[in-house]
Design a protein around this nucleic acid. Structure first.
Lengths: 359, 359
DNA sequence: CACCCTATTGACAGCGCTGTCATTCACGGA
DNA sequence: TCCGTGAATGACAGCGCTGTCAATAGGGTG
């Protein structure tokens, strides 16, 4: 009943199990005749090697694990909301992994756990993954890197900020993307630009802010303290920051939120305050969440190619697992972002008067 | 170096490996003294049994697989968009699986493949999962059910429509939810209600439509053919259907889209046509995607507890795997939906004249 | 022709567990 | 006293592969 083993294949092909194994693993020094015989038997029987037997006997497990922050996941789980980043990451990893005959396993990691080191060892010990993908903010958990290195398990960090010399990484130039976005606003004619910072737990928050500030400086624009507010990447925090920033007599003509969710919060706040976007206020975000295309107005934002990045990460790990020598392999990959200008950003109204809401 | 095996534990505890195994698996007839000794050694060494060895030697693999439609996934992957349903499903499954020491593996299945049967056998053969969660539209792929049954692998179908007697299932009463939503509109005073059907590939599309029609009938409202349009669950299709439905001289005072994405499409179309929601048009969706809270107006919709459903599914599978006898286990579970009334639905304007856009 | 090499194939041990069967021991009844 | 019984533990054989090492067969060389 589907329980086809290597013995069945060997018997049918009239060869030893080792030869079957050789063909399956594409080893050298296998005659064409053998290869064909085995291949035929494999096809006829619909044989697929058992993952567990392979990983138990050999040095590779054909498994790639993705480590995801447990807190973040629990938070999403509680709120009943999906995680777009995670989902896109997975899609990418899945596509790559699948085409190479590997499997993907998602593991939750709690970087705050007192027993983190032990937890990690346990997971790695019981799974023996050939490679691990670290997603933010795990990418920067140095204990995790330590354990991984101690075990010699190859890993790729997605969007890490610290200790950039450790391990492999795939990242996007967040700083420059934020810079570009700010320039986009400046070019439209905005001089009074507000900024909403993201969750300090994520490295990206700092980078985006830096990019913003650098661009402002370069264009000779003042960064006003009361127009740089701290959010935490949630809609609610965006709403609050937006409301606060727009409440004053003086208010920015454009707001750059560190992510789309917060931008939607600002949009809501603006609309409550009777301000039209982009007529009265230009608004831009970051991430290109699905909603960015559905919102009214559609949101100008930066698209991060998360799926592609995960694909690259998976590919790096798989080639690392397959290569005998560890050199000559790509260790760092920078992914290209895209600034997507949609409806929510436009030139500011020229007359100051015009900025007073009609109500 | 983390490579702790059962032998190490046995040695440290001064017992046989079999005893360690017994304690680990909570078998009967184990003295308290033994249990404590072993437990101590396990803790001290930070031991975790190897997944592959366990699954190779024993009858269970501690693995739950989720089968996901490959086409759908590829589509999402291409568009660079995450999959909210999938993400929520995973979160739920992950939480449950994790608390029981199981692992979750996502596998893509192409139900249209000519070699589907073989593919399935291969995957099941190489993974040997203790249970499988089927997501729509795989839940209704009878070949998949066949193979699963032939191998005796327990499975849970999420939201299946056909062959309801097969396997276990966790579902939501889509029909009744759509019924309730329609009643919600009728109670607000709407008599001219349009409907946008979902992708025919999904069973839910039919059920939602039936619920709509039943409610209309019960309230003595006419279902107009030109106000029931066929979409495919995408924003674009919603936009098109919406535009078409709102273009005529006569147009509905409310539109019920079979999912949120299409509702957003309608919203866009309405807004292009100068219609305000909900003043000129009430609009409701289905799914409660994240955007539903961020949109303006916020969307009235039905929340499907996907994460909970997946949790339940995982729990069913795990208890099935652990139970010796297969009886007395829950095989069918109905999840509760929630109708979330937000800003996008309101009473229709009374005067017909008022429905002409001000432009 | 003896001899060394390389290409090809097979035999076999073992990876770290679980399942099966055997062993031991204490206890109770005939 | 002897035997049956059940509880507690251990010995050992695999699960289905891969890694290692041995064996065999050509092929070229001096």
């Amino acid at each position: 009943m589907g329980a086809v083993t290597i013995y069945d294949v060997a018997e049918r092909a009239g060869v030893s199990i080792k030869s079957v194994s050789r063909v399956l693993n594409g080893e050298q020094n296998v005659s064409v005749a053998l290869r064909t015989k085995v291949q035929e038997a494999v096809d006829a029987l619909g044989y697929r090697p058992s993952l567990s037997a392979r990983s138990l006997a050999g040095s590779s497990s054909y498994l790639i694990a993705a480590f995801v922050d447990a807190d973040l996941t629990i938070e999403h789980w509680r709120s009943g909301r999906g995680n777009d980043y995670l989902s896109r990451m997975e899609l990418g990893a899945l596509m790559e992994v699948r085409s190479s005959g590997y499997h993907l396993m998602i593991e939750l990691v709690d970087p705050g756990s007192a027993t983190l080191e032990r937890d990690m060892s346990s997971v790695l010990g019981s799974l023996k993954p050939d490679g691990v993908i670290l997603t933010p903010p795990i990418s920067d958990a140095s204990v995790v890197l330590d354990v991984l290195e101690a075990r010699g398990t190859p890993y790729v960090r997605l969007g890490p900020e610290t200790q950039l010399d450790r391990g492999r990484r795939v990242y996007m130039d967040e700083r420059r993307a934020a810079f570009d976005m700010t320039v986009h606003l400046a070019r439209l004619g905005h001089r009074e630009i507000g900024f909403i910072v993201g969750n300090p737990r994520y490295a990206a928050s700092r980078l985006r802010r830096e990019g913003f500030e650098a661009a402002m400086a370069q264009h000779g624009l003042a960064v006003r303290d009361d127009w740089v507010l701290e959010g935490d990447f949630t809609f609610t925090s965006g709403f609050e920051c937006g409301a606060r920033m727009l409440a004053g007599v003086e208010r920015p003509t454009a707001i750059f939120a560190s992510n789309d969710d917060m931008a939607f919060g600002v949009l809501q706040a603006a609309s409550r305050g009777g301000l039209a976007v982009p007529a009265d206020l230009s608004l831009v975000g970051f991430d290109d969440t699905p909603s960015a295309q559905f919102s009214m107005p559609q949101l100008t934002t930066v698209r991060q190619p998360v799926a592609e990045m995960a694909e690259t990460a998976a590919r790096m790990l798989i080639s690392a697992a397959q290569a005998k020598a560890d050199d000559g392999l790509e260790r760092v990959h920078q992914a290209a972002y895209t600034l997507i200008a949609r409806e929510s950003s436009a030139p500011p109204r020229l007359a100051r008067a015009a900025r007073i809401p009609v109500s």
